[in-house]
Design a binder for these strands. Sequence first.
RNA 1: GCGGAUGGCUGGAUGACCGCGGGGCGCAAGCCUCGAGGAAAGUCCGGACUCCAUGAAGUAAGGGUGCCGGGUAACGCCCGGCGGGGGUAACCCCAGGGAAAGCGCCACAGAGAAGAGACUGCCUUGGUGUUCGGCCUAGCUGAACGCAAAGCCAAGGUGAGGGUGAAACGGUGGGGUAAGAGCCCACCACGGACCGGGCAACCGGGACGGUAUGGCAAGCCCCACCCGGAGCAAUGCCGAAUAGGGGCCUUUAGCGGAAAGGUCCGGAGUUCCAUCGCGCAAGCGAUGCCGGAGACCUCCGCGGGGACGCUUCAGCCCUUAGGCCCGGGUUGGUAGCUUGACCGCCCUGGUAACAGGUGCGGCAGAGGAAUGGUCAUCCAGAGGCGAAAGCCUUGGACAGAAUCCGGCUUACAGGCCAUCCGCGCAU
RNA 2: GGCCCGUUCGUCUAUCGGUUAGGACACCUGGUUUUCAACCAGGUAAGAGGGGUUCGACUCCCCUACGGGCUG
Length: 136
Amino acid sequence: MTPPGQSELRDSPETELSAAVLSCLIVLRVRADYLRAAQGRKAGTGGFLLQARPRDDTDPSARVGFTASKKIGNAVFRNRAKRRLRALAREVLAPDARPGWDYVLVAKPNATVSRDYSLLQADLRSAIALVHKDRT
RNA sequence: GCGGAUGGCUGGAUGACCGCGGGGCGCAAGCCUCGAGGAAAGUCCGGACUCCAUGAAGUAAGGGUGCCGGGUAACGCCCGGCGGGGGUAACCCCAGGGAAAGCGCCACAGAGAAGAGACUGCCUUGGUGUUCGGCCUAGCUGAACGCAAAGCCAAGGUGAGGGUGAAACGGUGGGGUAAGAGCCCACCACGGACCGGGCAACCGGGACGGUAUGGCAAGCCCCACCCGGAGCAAUGCCGAAUAGGGGCCUUUAGCGGAAAGGUCCGGAGUUCCAUCGCGCAAGCGAUGCCGGAGACCUCCGCGGGGACGCUUCAGCCCUUAGGCCCGGGUUGGUAGCUUGACCGCCCUGGUAACAGGUGCGGCAGAGGAAUGGUCAUCCAGAGGCGAAAGCCUUGGACAGAAUCCGGCUUACAGGCCAUCCGCGCAU
RNA sequence: GGCCCGUUCGUCUAUCGGUUAGGACACCUGGUUUUCAACCAGGUAAGAGGGGUUCGACUCCCCUACGGGCUG
């Protein structure tokens, strides 16, 4: 299975990173932050839309936000979309997030809830690479 | 067996890895434990709770409810009954008070739409011959028909027939009459003194009345009963930051005193409290050194004020300035916050709703908002293949707590249980 | 979360319980003009959905759906 193999592989870096990374992944709370992130780099994928921007301040933490509009569906579907995106961010985005950046994951109707999870993981990896490469 | 009615339950299960929110323990690492629904929904009713300072009575306006009895903290909810309607039945549905308090409306059609009306008709009496034609048209005259009616005119009787309409001022039959009419009679409908039953709604009987009372109150209204307003983004406390602002309204915005306690000062002592009393308990109350001060807090008296539609009263609560608007800043923490008119099983009372009892068990508390993500196996379900066993594929209803309860309404794949009704078959 | 309000032609809006639901803009057709615009004439086109009260409902009552506003 994947969990033991991956944990073996990432063992030494993960333990150091995890504390730092998890503490750095702060949830965006202010509407203005979301509006500013929407002005930054965008990378659309089959399951969601990733927005990212580097903040030009001294705070080294990486922050992340989630958006699920009424187009997604009723409250059950909106919650599920946000939970899947949150799980993705924890597994994929946390190790690769750059300090001082804001990320926003926007759910897409139907896709975010029904798309296969492994495809979503691949989507997020490529989207992160796209956003980071374009910037540098 | 088929079809139906009613009531209730359930709403995937187990495991692995990685995670989230609350609580407890721990210095920490971490460990343990709890973590969505029957509708959490719509926000349609009723409450608890908080603020508007409290309570009571009356009343205006406005709103709501509306058969009777009961249940409940309360309700527009529930239970039982009554009446009306539907269904072969089980059973279901009903905003179901008052139209003789008053106002209003009843389009079109129709004679007439509310103390109505007289179109076509029917009948009686009186008058007049009738119809057709011609002319010089208040009239004259010719022909045909007829000898007593019809027609026309006038006066009167009538409300039965026709037709209209959602609805036409009781219905059917008979008698009666000039023609008719509850004018009279029988039955039905209606009203109904009174009698019996029932707590009541109402039910049964019914002298008598000849018919009076058209419909609409989810039109205004009347009657009875109920209702103050706002809502946890209520309302407190702490902190940060900006500022130490501007405008308006009301106003007598105060006076006198005390020093047990807080506070302050000096000295002593102390800090998680101790002692005593009450209580089953949670808890509540009292006491806790000495001297001084009177600015502040506090307390007492007098005076003033207290918006909530208005008035009155009580109590003596709050206050000693209050309120509103603009501008500026913040968008934090904490309390409210979840054990309550609570839920399930059981026992007792009651037809039931429900009430009482105690025994056991259960009950999330976030705050840009947790309750999840992925995978595997199984279980319902659907489709395909197959004679069957079985195999493969697919796939899980409506839907996510936000102060908390009691209801209502709406959404809901599938499954299960109980009771009852109709039909058919067998015995 | 809480509290309110509203749904009528494609759009904006009228409408005592008694209609063929009125008007303006837009659209279509015809006329006028060399043509277009403007103008004239005519036409198409609507009661959010479901129940109830009533003889009769856009209107009165109830439920649902959708849309909008206010509130620290």
